[in-house]
Write a protein that binds this DNA or RNA. Structure first.
Lengths: 126, 126
DNA sequence: TGTTAAAATTAGAATGATTCTAATTTTAAC
DNA sequence: GTTAAAATTAGAATCATTCTAATTTTAACA
């Protein structure tokens, strides 16, 4: 693992948000660890393929990268905002229902976040 | 709902695969119901926002569209192939664990499909 | 039936995320 | 120190998707 890769891995593991490739790129720049955007993508691909990070696609938004540590996600239908939530671990239950061997699972709960709900209500007022 | 929208909705509901916008566009062309690609996107956005279809983002592949009828998905880590699987309905269980109101959930099981497993094994031989 | 306004569609440009390519630099082993 | 492999860079290219403005269709109404 190269210095850049391990630095990016560390960033993702220490972050409490769900970084996009670009956010990682910008953070690196700020910390004077500047690299080029394609290097960030390269390293993210590498880390993902090695199973060291999670990659979370959300409809209509750039992919986000997340630590492996098991947890689930809430996604706002309106704005795509992503947040963490820890629900009951389903690994065993799912594995029992499947005939095949599961690498992992990805559970997203769709909802409307508070901010968007507020906006909706305001819209109704006028 | 316009003719195009309902036609596209019907296509999705009758399809056993998970169509991309482009596949829908090509199928329409074949059936002499030709429209332009942006119309397909417009209608898909509309149908999705109305909650009449599902939109499935898969890392590194174009979005796919699916019928609403509850079911879960298997995704191949290697090739992105998507297939249906019907697992125990988690709606109630999840709703109980959440404080908020859930619109829906999206469960993806990651695995390596047969074709990719075969390829991997062949690779090892040589 | 002709008129009109709204909605849908078209064509194609624009955007944004991501990948690719070729050249250059870094790394690490000999 | 030399060399080969791997990583990085710079920027072009690609692909999916959205946007814009012009045109067409639709459907209600005069």
């Amino acid at each position: 693992m190269t210095k850049n890769a391990s630095y990016i891995l560390e960033m993702i593991n220490n972050s409490h948000s769900h970084l996009t490739a670009e956010q990682i790129y910008l953070q690196l720049k700020e910390k004077n660890q500047a690299v080029v955007l394609s290097t960030v993508y390269n390293n993210l691909s590498y880390l993902y393929q090695e199973g060291l990070i999670r990659k979370i696609p959300v409809e209509g938004y750039p992919d986000r990268y997340d630590k492996i540590l098991r947890h689930d996600h809430l996604v706002c239908r309106k704005c795509g905002q992503l947040s963490d939530i820890l629900l009951e671990d389903l690994t065993e239950k799912l594995q029992n229902q499947l005939g095949i061997s599961m690498l992992s699972y990805d559970l997203k709960i769709h909802y409307i976040c508070e901010a968007c709900q507020k906006k909706e209500n305001e819209g109704e007022d006028s």
